Computed example of a mutant assay.
Amino acid sequence: MSDNFEPFVHFAPLAQTLPLVCDSPHSGTQYPQDFRAAVPAQRLRGGEDTHVEALWEAVPQAGGTLIAANFPRVYIDPNRTLDDLDPSLLDGTWPEPLAPGEKTRLGYGLIWRNIDAATPIYDRKLSLEEVRNRIDRYYRPYHQALSGAVEETYRRFGAVWHLNLHSMPNNAYERLKIQSAHPLADFVLGDRDGTTCEPAFVDLVDAELRSLGYTVARNDPYKGVQLIAQIGRPAEWRNSLQIEIRRPLYMDEVTRERNAGFDQLQADLGRLIERIAVYLEEQGRG
């Protein structure tokens, strides 16, 4: 654990030729010293979308922008609103109004309470000061970097397509306490039930992934949370789509090591980015 790291890394293209901004808010693997969790580091790593930023290395190579968090979401989650905070975690009263959501009730809010349903992360309450520090030192800089990239891209091209990049555990339905009649898809595309991204772009991503041999679902079980909600306004040429990848496709969920499927998946995502680039050019936006 160390505090000697930047809150995010910005993979910029040599020249931005595409109105494409991607972010990986949950792939961070550097744990701040003040975390003071009561569970082993290996258990904490279960919350990581480990290697997701590496899977999508084709984005800056193709002329888009990729931003990835360096801090772990179990410490503070940049894909949650600031009011999505569990008051039971705190040793005092938060001075602003709070509105914890359903995932916060399960233990996965702005600051995670549990690593799984049976395992709390802390054996103590968090001080208001340390929560403020997490917000100011990590959460806000990440949001500022992403917002800056989105707005600069929109200014330059008159449009922006944003991909919010994640990976999901193989037991996602179980973690979310959802009874599903079918297995988890290889990819889940989330557009908050059609509200954050133009349908043609979602169709394109869906069709390309299926053509590569993957199973695809939409908004099941992940619809997307804060980041695509605040960026996606397709009527204004601001499109935002969340992409979840089933982790066993590319890594061992216990060791977090890349498995034999990593290289093929990385190459396939490169093909997807190539197809997206063609689409954006056809729109007159690339």
Rank of each mutant, 00 (worst) to 15 (best):
W237V: 06
L189G: 04
N219M: 09
H143M: 07
L269Y: 02
F187S: 04
K177L: 15
G194K: 06
I67M: 09
Q16F: 00
D252Y: 12
P40H: 08
E274Y: 03
L184E: 00
T153I: 12
P141W: 01
A54S: 15
T17I: 10
D263W: 04
E236D: 15
T50G: 09
A62L: 07
M168C: 08
D193A: 15
G270F: 01
D206R: 15
G213W: 06
Y214D: 05
T93L: 14
I231E: 00
E198A: 09
V254L: 11
I178C: 14
I243C: 06
D23F: 05
H162N: 01
F5P: 15
F11A: 06
P7N: 05
N239E: 00
Y31I: 10
P183W: 05
F11L: 11
N79D: 09
A149F: 01
V188M: 09
E53P: 13
D86T: 06
E281R: 15
P78W: 04
E274D: 13
V52K: 00
Q242C: 14
D220P: 14
D83V: 10
A41Q: 14
V216D: 06
R247K: 12
T196D: 01
E48V: 06
S88V: 13
L82A: 08
G224I: 05
E48T: 10
T17D: 08
H166R: 04
A277G: 01
I121Q: 03
A235K: 12
R258Q: 04
P234A: 03
G109Q: 01
D252M: 05
K125S: 13
A217I: 07
Q266G: 00
W161E: 10
D23I: 07
V278T: 12
V254T: 14
P141T: 00
I135V: 15
L126M: 11
M168L: 11
A15V: 15
L85A: 04
R238T: 05
I76K: 01
D263K: 02
V216T: 00
A207V: 08
R43M: 02
D268G: 11
V278W: 09
R210D: 07
S127G: 08
E253F: 08
